[in-house]
């Protein structure tokens, strides 16, 4: 076992340039393919057209009825509503299922029934129950975020070092004390892992919810782009969804790092 390994400090120049070249090639090829008409402009819009629409959409309401940042704001509201509800329900449920036998015995069968149903499948029922407004979408997103929250919190508790639990028992700790002071802290890294996974699930389901039933939001914008046969709007919507999702992901990552600073092993 060697404690020190040689570290190659220098990376070849090619490795630094290649990523830039590859992305640039991608966009240029895309532009050329559309401009030359290899792909008809009813099917795909050139990057420049999409960029134009991007700036246009900050001031122009037509043809989909809202400005770009209004769409984004609607989506973010829905996503975070569902996300925080999922955290608030899923994490305590998962933690309790991991430690208390009664909680696991009661919750597990229902969880196993619901888990394999893709959240998208709930959309029609949701429309029956809540209509196409905000609560319905939050419900779908909540369902999507719930599963990873429960699983990660559960696994986190189950991974608590059994020797530590036995140690706590020999010191006379009660079940509740062990749960609070041992299981929850040792499950924290897994719980924070759930924050990212749940967010990704929520964001996916948001788009699904908006594709099917909405009157605003980024997913709605994509659908409108298709209905109006405006590929540039579809592409813009997709990019905005990706961008916003990545942006929120970065924020959560930051928060997670700060909260976990002392716990990471």
């Amino acid at each position: 076992m060697t404690a020190y390994r040689e570290v190659v400090v220098r990376t070849p120049l090619a490795l630094k340039i290649l990523p830039i070249v590859s992305v640039a090639t991608f966009f240029i090829a895309w532009e050329i393919v559309v401009r030359t008409g290899v792909v008809p402009d009813t099917m795909l819009a050139a990057p420049t057209t999409v960029t134009q629409l991007l700036f246009d959409k900050f001031t122009n309401v037509d043809p989909d009825g809202a400005l770009l940042h209004q769409h984004a704001w609607v989506s973010i509201q829905e996503a975070f509503g569902g996300y925080f509800l999922a955290l608030a329900v899923g994490l305590p449920l998962g933690l309790a299922m991991g430690w208390f036998n009664v909680a696991e015995g009661l919750a597990r069968p229902i969880f196993e029934i619901i888990r394999p149903i893709p959240p998208v499948a709930w959309i029609p029922l949701t429309i029956f129950w809540f209509g196409i407004g905000l609560p319905g979408k939050i419900f779908i997103i909540w369902l999507g975020g719930l599963v990873p929250c429960v699983i990660n919190a559960y696994v986190g508790v189950k991974m608590t070092n059994p020797t530590l639990i036995q140690m706590a028992r020999t010191y006379g700790a009660s079940d509740w004390q062990i749960f609070r002071q041992l299981c929850i802290p040792s499950a924290l890294p897994m719980v924070f892992g759930a924050l990212q996974i749940a967010l990704a699930c929520c964001w996916t389901n948001l788009v699904a919810a908006e594709l099917l039933a909405a009157d605003a939001g980024l997913g709605f914008m994509i659908t409108m782009g298709r209905r109006l046969a405006m590929p540039e709007m579809v592409v813009l919507g997709m990019f905005m969804v990706g961008l916003t999702g990545a942006f929120i992901g970065v924020i959560i990552d930051r928060v997670e790092k700060r909260l976990l600073a002392g716990i990471r092993r």
């Binding site: 060697t2 020190y4 390994r5 040689e6 570290v7 400090v9």
Partner: peptide, 12 residues
């Protein structure tokens, strides 16, 4: 001699 991160030399 190993070179550690930060180019510190460690004679082994």
């Amino acid at each position: 001699t190993f070179i550690q991160k930060g180019s510190q030399e460690v004679p082994v």
